[in-house]
Amino acid sequence: MAGLSTRHLLGIKDLNPADIQLIFETADNFKTVLNRPIKKVPSLRDVTIANIFFENSTRTRLSFELAEKRLSADVVNFAASSSSVSKGETLIDTVNNILAMKVDMVVMRHPYAGAGIFLSKHVKAQIVNAGDGAHEHPTQALLDAFSIREKLGDVAGKKVVIVGDILHSRVALSNILCLKHLGAEVMVCGPTTLIPKYIGSLGVKVEHNLLKALNWCDVANMLRIQLERQDIKYFPSLREYTMLYGLNKQILDSLDKEIIVMHPGPINRGVEITSDVADSKQSIILDQVENGVAIRMAVLFLLAGQTP
């Protein structure tokens, strides 16, 4: 039977629509597994996976680790802050040393764009990108689209607006590519300084007025302002940003339809989204987290199944 068209998951760029459908259908099955009394299956019992995180993460790392454990894989964790990387070891050396200990797959997060692609060309293991700089975060995009599909029945034809720091966001790029693959209409919304100049070439609409964007959409994905990646000021103050682009209950209630609110986390409550919206019925933030494990199980299962 046909599997994925790629050996690594480096970005949504490498996937075709059939791959995404296969991942979703497999994730459906894993979601039922996760609702059983015994949530573990033995599929990956002879696979060892290293989670290599050169950048901080809570959700993604926990989610990957849970997915791996529920597939019965052996897991080793590695955080750059407590490792020899701080002694000056190169990326290839670090990973090859880990692979020398017979690791089959590497899940990597790295602050530099393309780190996963670079690694995939130099080491034998299968690589899953868990976020590389401001480039891609494929599993996040897959779980976002999966959550929309779960909530609205389908992704095709739906209107999704991505609000906030598009310039520094790997979630935005992966989401745009994934949603376009699945036939959704995508709009980005934010201050001019945080929208890349050539974003239109990806086939997305651009809007600078939050209210207009929300009136247009079925789903609003609110991104975090990534202050840690901003070395210059992109807007006068956080307070001004919140006034213009923050989502609060008043704006949500003023719309003539119920839109779905998403957030990839971590939330800066009171900045891009207020607490009452984040915790409201319209928010599917925690569904996204739940689906994350099923999506990651599906990706790992389908990739691991390729090895002869």
């Binding site: 039977m1 046909a2 099955n29 597994v33 599929s43 990956l44 597939l71 389908l302 199944g305 002869p308």
Partner: peptide
């Protein structure tokens, strides 16, 4: 998910 020939044959695709 319980087969003993996973990774020893072509891709397996799950059913419901």
């Amino acid at each position: 998910f319980y087969r003993d020939d996973f990774r020893r044959r072509d891709q397996l695709v799950p059913n419901q």
